[in-house]
Amino acid sequence: MALYLREDFQQAWAGKDAFAEAAALTGETFRHKEGRRTLRFSLGGRRYFLKYHAGIGWGEVLKNLLQARAPVLGARNEYEASLRLAALGVDTLTPAAFGERGINPARRESFLITDDLADSVSLEDYCRDWPTRPPALHERRRLMRVVTGMVRTMHEAGINHRDCYLCHFLLYPDTLAQATIDSDVRCHLIDLHRAQIRDRVPRRWQVKDVAGLAYSAMDIGLSRRDWLRCLRAYAGVPLKTALGRDRAFWLAVKQRAEKLYRKDMKREPPPWL
């Protein structure tokens, strides 16, 4: 069994079974299926998010394996990924409580409670009107550098997200408007429950993350020059070097992103990379 309780939950749950307390929490429910329940709740005048895993069962485990997908067995991945990203200076979830018990992977019980990122907005929503109401040029470029830098840092640390889309980046807009340097911007990477942690991210998982992010940004009005700036920021080398040395990687990203776009949007993607 593993258990972590921050001081606020040590006090709130003193002398109680933390797993029973987590299972009994109620609030605004966002998901409740496949053995996982996600909700926002309040405790002691503060708001939190709960992800509670009751075990997905062997049927769901086998279904995922047959689809060549790694099943999500509990909250540990998200907990460990958030700690590692925070240690690297990447804004992400802040754990307030974590618990895991049980040997059977299909019936393992776990939970993760994080601080609520109140007043933040997903980049999917924030960028939605950019084609008709473009932001200030310096703000757009700063946000592009921040997001691509976050993904680059994540991959260099051996973490891949597996759901790397604009909707999973939560921005505090005021910090972007008032920023004088990139580190002033508060943009949090969330939904890490499918994250994988290794010594090094395999290329196919890098492609998946970068292509997912590119696909989700295809309709926000970025120019070809914007895309090339993102490419350079992610590669961390001059553009000419990145396009030469990593040509096969970026071709794979382009093909995967455009395939996703055609599948979901039922139309050809706009010109981009």
Rank of each mutant, 00 (worst) to 15 (best):
A2S: 14
L3H: 01
L3S: 00
Y4F: 05
F9M: 07
Q10N: 07
W13R: 05
A14Q: 11
A14E: 13
G15T: 02
K16V: 03
D17P: 01
A18D: 01
F19Q: 10
A22C: 06
A23R: 09
A24R: 15
A24T: 03
T26S: 08
E28A: 13
T29P: 04
K33I: 10
E34R: 15
R37G: 02
R37K: 15
R40Y: 06
Y48P: 04
L50R: 09
K51A: 06
H53P: 06
I56M: 09
G59H: 10
G59R: 15
E60S: 07
N64L: 03
P71N: 01
E78D: 06
Y79E: 00
E80W: 12
L85S: 04
L85I: 04
L85M: 14
A87Q: 11
A87D: 11
L88A: 12
G89H: 12
G89R: 15
D91L: 13
D91Q: 09
D91H: 15
T92D: 09
A97T: 00
A97Y: 04
E100R: 03
R101K: 12
G102H: 12
N104K: 11
P105W: 08
R107W: 10
F111I: 12
I113A: 04
T114Y: 04
L117Y: 08
A118S: 13
P131N: 06
A136I: 14
A136D: 12
R141L: 09
R142W: 10
R145N: 13
V146N: 02
V147C: 10
V151S: 11
V151L: 15
R152F: 04
M154H: 10
M154Q: 12
I159H: 06
N160I: 11
N160T: 11
D163Y: 08
Y165I: 04
L166D: 08
L166T: 13
C167P: 08
F169R: 05
F169E: 07
Y172G: 01
Y172I: 10
Y172R: 14
P173Q: 06
A177S: 12
A177I: 08
D184E: 03
V185G: 06
R186P: 04
H188T: 03
L189R: 07
L189P: 00
L189F: 05
L189N: 01
I190E: 09
D191F: 05
R194Q: 06
A195G: 02
I197S: 09
I197D: 01
R198V: 02
R198I: 00
D199K: 15
D199Y: 12
R200H: 12
V201P: 07
V201A: 06
P202M: 02
W205V: 01
V207A: 00
D209C: 04
A211Y: 10
L213Q: 00
D219P: 01
I220F: 06
R224C: 11
R224M: 04
R225H: 04
W227M: 14
R229L: 15
C230A: 13
L231R: 10
G236Y: 05
G236M: 07
P238I: 02
P238T: 05
T241M: 11
A242C: 03
L243V: 03
G244V: 11
G244Q: 14
G244Y: 12
R247F: 11
A248H: 13
A248L: 15
F249Q: 00
L251F: 04
K254C: 15
Q255W: 13
A257Y: 05
L260M: 06
Y261F: 08
R262N: 03
M265V: 08
R267K: 14
E268Y: 05
P270Y: 00
L273E: 02
